[in-house]
Nucleic acid binder design. Sequence first.
DNA 1: TATGAATGAGTGTTCATTCAT
DNA 2: TATGAATGAACACTCATTCAT
Lengths: 216, 216, 216, 216
Amino acid sequence: MPPSLPISRDSQSKLLHILRLSAQIFAQRGFQRASIRDISRATGVSLSGLYYYFESKQKLLYLIQKNAFTSILESLTQRLQSLHEPQARLHLLIQNHLEYFLAHPYETRVLSHEEDALDEPLRKEIATIKRNYYNQAREILEQVVAEVPGSNLNPRLAILTLFGMMNWVYQWHNPDLDPGAEELTNVIVGIFLHGVLPGAPEDTEFHMAELPAADS
Amino acid sequence: MPPSLPISRDSQSKLLHILRLSAQIFAQRGFQRASIRDISRATGVSLSGLYYYFESKQKLLYLIQKNAFTSILESLTQRLQSLHEPQARLHLLIQNHLEYFLAHPYETRVLSHEEDALDEPLRKEIATIKRNYYNQAREILEQVVAEVPGSNLNPRLAILTLFGMMNWVYQWHNPDLDPGAEELTNVIVGIFLHGVLPGAPEDTEFHMAELPAADS
Amino acid sequence: MPPSLPISRDSQSKLLHILRLSAQIFAQRGFQRASIRDISRATGVSLSGLYYYFESKQKLLYLIQKNAFTSILESLTQRLQSLHEPQARLHLLIQNHLEYFLAHPYETRVLSHEEDALDEPLRKEIATIKRNYYNQAREILEQVVAEVPGSNLNPRLAILTLFGMMNWVYQWHNPDLDPGAEELTNVIVGIFLHGVLPGAPEDTEFHMAELPAADS
Amino acid sequence: MPPSLPISRDSQSKLLHILRLSAQIFAQRGFQRASIRDISRATGVSLSGLYYYFESKQKLLYLIQKNAFTSILESLTQRLQSLHEPQARLHLLIQNHLEYFLAHPYETRVLSHEEDALDEPLRKEIATIKRNYYNQAREILEQVVAEVPGSNLNPRLAILTLFGMMNWVYQWHNPDLDPGAEELTNVIVGIFLHGVLPGAPEDTEFHMAELPAADS
DNA sequence: TATGAATGAGTGTTCATTCAT
DNA sequence: TATGAATGAACACTCATTCAT
């Protein structure tokens, strides 16, 4: 997390300040569209001065993404320590995720949207952290499902679907309109565990044959 | 002084060919990163020759997105005509969506990922079509929920969550590994309607107070 | 020699014009110091317009050097065809070299001075042509020496010394002051073959022991 | 307000260390290409720290060149004091030159290759030293020639040709392959005084009329 | 003596777009 | 319909140098 060169306390906190503003700019304009000049303007640091804090635009993006993921993972790990009940752990995973997302909307957008903007080898580094997170989530889910006798759930599809619900939030969440992390967590946990319909699922299943097919 | 959209049959089909290849390039490299030169290379049409078919890079993106949405909406509208049962209509919505997504992965990515790459006024035009689609989906959902007495579901959150599940698919779906549209539809419909757990939801609800809070 | 893209007669001759002016600028300011903007100014072609004719500054230097060498080598090969007497061939080699040097002082300076400014793999390509030329020169020299019975001359040292005499010319030759190619050739041929002293060499040799040594 | 040249013993020797490493870097990458950062890295001295030892990159180059020339000239002057025979003095000039060149290949390259990298007025200062050296060499040569009755040698051309032979050495000398200073001196003295051919020169002269002309 | 932090000027290069043909 | 030739604006990045400490 510290830049390759500087060590001082001031320098560190200035870097963090730059990362924060850069995340905002990348979120608003997109990584490719945003120019280092934009960041220079926003931070008040001269164009060349920025390069004292990061070696390249790519590396800047990398630092933002790594910082964000580390933040989420550390908080999750710490909070999970005291929880052992499977459903409680799943609830926490979702809540932790959404709390970060709603508290850091810019970093979130960069995380969710600019995954592919990184070139190798930085891309792989981030992918590794991500996979780590994904595996942890999947384990938690599998323990929830393990309690249900006779479930034939595909855990890969289930967890990716869950991530879809959560990660898409950055595309639509309006803080003036939509609920905060706590209530949003309850909604998503509710849908993920029990769906929007209560009661027996058996008689609501449809089969392709009954549906009209697309033309092409 | 070429027309904004060319008229001859040949010209039309060549435009479609260009749109297809452009979608692929935009999907693979991202809109900003991809250059018209990339498209020239891929299509074999000279750099300046391309401008006969579209007026600007923005307009090219617009054409791709509009074509894709139109395609999805037309197919949906047509297929819905013969279906009146609410849950069947919802199932069809999801299936129609996923069928297009898996059949046109490049266009899908451009649709989901390059929403904000358009500037006004083109952005607003696409947003209008999108809102149209969203409203239709929401109506279908509300009819499903209306059948359930005493549901306190927030339909905005529910439908956006559903779109999250579906739209995120382009980020992870691997045709060699993951099921096709039909089965995927069943999985998502299943989770959305009934969740990953069967049975009574009441006793599985958690409350924030029991969960550890994040540090910062 | 033609650029990768353009083919037309006009384009070709414009490229040659650019190469000529670029050689002058590289000669006067040095390759690294000279900027593409300098070349844009000198040629009247816009900064970006230049990149239609060459792909990079490196490639521009490469084109200049390759053109120059090709020119020298072609002229040499052609003129050597009708000459078979060894000394006459050596004389021609030197004259051909000097004629080009005095007629194209800018290209010459770029050739002699900017050898190492090229990066691989272009550097190697030029080196190959140069080695070709060097080998031809060495063969010619060896045939001259072969006629002398009992010569113990090191041909590598001899030919490199000869190239030293010739290639250094660009560092000092003043057209207002110094003789032209013909006379200069005679001088260099004279010194190289017979030295600045006439008569018997035997009694003028010195041995280290008689000379004072340097301090460090 | 550091002095233009530092005074302490330590400082002096550190400056010399910096000059040595800088010469190497300038030799290997070329003056313009080499950055002060390269020198900082090589010396371990911080970027700004270097500016205590020299005021600018130009001045650094100047110091290297001046040091080198002073070294050559001082050694030459001292060693010439005890020698009075003209040919012996010429031999010594060449040997002194080559000994320095082979012992200090980096400084040599900077001397021979980066002549024009200096801007005025530093350029003129070095040029003055150089002219000094050149004049001394020319005087020595003229005394050699004065002993030969009836010589019509152009001394300017002769001495510049000699410098060509010597100065070009840095372009090709390979310590693993080529002889050391002593033998190299003998070879160059031999060629310069007597040429590569022994015996009477009169009948080996060629005239332009007999040679084929170049095309353009 | 020495350095971390900063900067203005400049670099080579790319890009979407144009226009005469 | 199509293209070769051209351009202005912008971009990421590097550089020699400075200055407070």
